[in-house]
Design a binder for these strands. Structure first.
Length: 589
RNA sequence: GCGCCUUUAACUCAGCUGGAUAGAGUAACUGCCUUCUAAGCAGUAAGCCAAAGGUUCGAAUCCUUUAAGGCGCGCCA
């Protein structure tokens, strides 16, 4: 039950009814009315809902706003409404104040609806595919993937809570140039290991890890084991080569280049993909689908898309390559889809992939979580979909700004190529999953994010996740204490709940009431960080209530029971939100 | 050169479709545990909302210009 939305709707209809009476009594002229807003004022001294009807009517009615407000007020009938009173304030705002019954109803709803409380059906069962992380399987995941993971996973949860049929998907780039590069890198490392110098290292080193370190050297490419420019240098590549060597010895050393690379990729790639799956599982992310790019090549989708693009008339040949007229469809410039060497560029599988999502599999919407460095590519992808006759607005790309990793107050360079970037796994060795997920979801995707390593490693109370978890643990402990004394949470009782009338109690209840509206807002704006912020606010409301109101030693048993119900409702809501964020809700800390 | 993003307190950031005296958390300083978890609460101090114009009853929010920073602009992915 969304008590906020329903109260807000009632403000609107009460005003419209009042205006109708005023017109009927000829107290105001029958003019068409402009739109007006009903909002929740920042300061609750200004009521629980404020309407600007009088101000927006000033011009068409040619009357001062406060005068209009007074007329409307005199015509309002508040009986049977959730409101106690209406006041006129400031330049002509009409401030509506909720009555005690409304507050009690919120608590009753939460307790009755339990883990269902907060869910809405705004999504009307529409099928949405959320694709996120989709990290390159040629190496480990980095900090940016950690952010994308937290955002994408929570967004999917939020959409589900808002009544969408949301699925999570990981797109595996297991084809194309980067796989070539992967093979080349593995092959070179394998050859190095087979070499005399490599064998010497293997004998001298105690284990594979040490072999990797020694071969990697200072920067991964110099010293005894030089590497060219266009390869992956990370130690994980060396480890794969070494493991492959341990299995096969040098039997592939003199094999044709192509064959050696193929064997190495076939050996290493599945391991990497499994690694991604394991690491993400540790990060509490489980995908509905792992979709391999190679499938689109194998089933002819890529070739078919090229033909369809040609048929659309939006292609032309130039310099022996096939170009797509993206500019005519809103993108910044045209781009190549098939190189002069006959190999399609990376965008083609991408187009085929999104076509697969929206047409072949028939999702109503596709949402991609991408790093901001891909922003230039989005209009191109959309242009291609448009050419294919797909409504491009069904694809929404949520861009996340880069994560700036800070150590000792200075930015840490994230070099992907040298393999020295901070990995998700390393990160999770230092900070708990709860903290990482919460932290990466604290800011909206579009905000530039500063990740302070020293702070994250600290595990200190400055991390807001503890603040929220503490509120939950505090309630659990409180309820347990009372239960030990024979006092259990009573069945929702309307009369008792009327007693919750102090500021702290009412503020807390209003915050409980906000959950469904927050979920809808987060789903509409594709911004799951709203829920994280909501949980912090809710925890703050509870801590204040806890400080201001005694439960066990309340003035009366009835009040004690009412407060106990409020605690239970708060525990429920905190739990519901933390579940969505996949952060644990501890019973004690 | 062109495009996208950002600029709010000492630091990290909120501020919903324009609304009433600009918010939180850190850090600083003051108080509050013989009573339900002090990982908490209350308070003090801290701001020319990057700058300048414009739109209107009303602007941190919308428009234009400027400045600073980040990221893109390949027959790489």
């Amino acid at each position: 039950m969304n008590h906020i939305a329903s109260a807000s709707d009632q403000v609107r209809s009460l005003i419209l009814e009042a205006l109708g009476r005023l017109v009927a009594d000829s107290l105001i002229p029958a003019e068409p009315l402009p739109d007006f807003t009903v909002e929740i004022p920042a300061d609750h001294a200004h009521g629980d809902f404020a309407a600007n009807i009088a101000m927006v009517c000033a011009r068409p009615l040619r009357m001062p706003p406060r005068k209009i407000a007074e007329l409307i007020q005199s015509a309002l009938i508040l009986d049977d409404s959730p409101f106690d009173k209406v006041e006129i304030a400031g330049p002509g705002f009409m401030n509506f104040y909720l009555g005690q019954r409304w507050y009690g109803d919120v608590v009753r709803s939460v307790i009755a609806e339990k883990e269902m409380y907060g869910k809405t059906d705004s999504g009307a069962g529409k099928r949405v595919l959320v694709e996120f992380v989709s990290a390159n399987p040629t190496g480990p995941m980095h900090v940016g993937n950690a952010r994308g993971g937290a955002i994408g996973d929570c967004l999917a949860s939020v959409l589900q809570a808002a009544g969408y049929q949301a699925e999570r998907e990981f797109y595996i780039n297991d084809a194309g140039n980067q796989i070539e590069k992967f093979g080349k890198s593995l092959s070179l490392r394998y050859q190095q290991i087979c070499s005399e110098a490599g064998q010497a290292v293997c004998k001298a080193a105690a284990d594979t890890e040490q072999v990797c370190k020694m071969i990697y050297g200072e920067d991964g490419k110099s010293g005894e084991f030089p590497m060219p420019e266009d390869v992956y240098l990370g130690q994980d590549i060396i480890a794969h080569a070494k493991n492959f060597y341990d299995l096969h010895g040098d039997e592939f050393l003199n094999a044709p280049d192509e064959e050696r690379r193929k064997a190495l990729v076939a050996f290493a790639l599945p391991k990497n993909i499994q690694g991604l799956e394991d690491d993400l599982a540790q990060y509490r992310i489980r995908y509905d689908t792992w979709f391999p790019e190679s499938r689109l090549h194998a089933d002819g989708s890529v070739q078919k898309i090229i033909q369809q693009l040609k048929d659309s008339g939006y292609t032309y040949e130039s310099d022996g390559a096939l170009w797509f007229k993206a500019q005519e469809l809103g993108a910044d410039k045209d781009f190549v889809i098939v190189r002069s060497n006959g190999i399609p560029t990376y965008v083609v599988p991408d187009i085929a992939y999104h076509y697969n999502k929206l047409v072949t599999r028939g999702f109503d919407r596709a949402i991609d979580i991408l790093g901001a460095d891909h922003h230039g590519y989005v209009p191109r992808l959309k242009a291609a979909l448009t050419a294919l006759g797909v409504d491009a607005s069904r694809l929404t790309v949520v861009l996340m700004q880069m994560v700036a990793v800070m150590r000792d107050g200075k930015p840490v360079k994230q070099s992907k190529r040298s393999g020295k970037a901070l990995t998700l796994v390393t990160l999770l060795e230092d900070i708990p999953v709860d903290a990482a997920r919460f932290f990466f979801n604290l800011r909206e995707a579009n905000s530039h994010f500063e990740f302070d390593l020293d702070l994250a490693v600290e595990k200190s109370s400055s991390n807001p996740v503890y603040y929220v978890q503490y509120a939950h643990a505090r309630i659990c402990s409180l309820i347990k204490n009372l239960a030990d004394g024979g006092v259990t949470v009573p069945p929702a009782d309307r009369a008792a709940l009327q007693l919750l009338d102090t500021t702290a109690e009412r503020v807390l209840i209003r915050q409980l009431a906000m959950l469904p509206a927050e979920i809808d807002a987060a789903a509409n704006q594709l911004d799951p960080s709203r829920l994280t912020k909501y949980s912090v606010d809710l925890a703050a409301c509870f801590h204040k209530f806890y400080d201001a109101c005694k439960v066990r030693d309340a003035e009366s048993e009835q009040l004690r029971d009412a407060r106990l119900m409020l605690c239970e409702a708060t525990r429920q809501v905190l739990g519901n939100v933390l579940t969505m964020l996949k952060v644990t809700a501890p019973e004690k800390m």
